[in-house]
């Protein structure tokens, strides 16, 4: 019973770590590639074009 509870905690901790990592990745890509604030857009302009993001 205890072992089962522990392994269940282990699995959900793993999934939480994976979900958090995916969220961080998505946030970075959205920030660097998509957010249209003028300062961000101008700074990231060339790299956005070169990586095929919709830019203007």
């Amino acid at each position: 019973m205890t072992a089962q509870t522990q392994s269940r905690t282990g699995i959900s901790a793993k999934l939480a770590a994976i979900a958090l990592s995916a969220f961080i990745g998505l946030a970075i890509v959205t920030l660097a590639g998509h957010v249209q604030t003028a300062a961000l857009h101008d700074a990231a302009h060339d790299s956005r074009h070169a990586m095929g993001f919709p830019c203007h």
Binding site: L26, A27, A32, S47, A50, M51
Partner: peptide, 12 residues
């Protein structure tokens, strides 16, 4: 920004 973007992709 290219480095940042690929770091984001690496997380995913």
């Amino acid at each position: 920004f290219t480095t940042l973007t690929y770091t984001g992709y690496a997380f995913l």
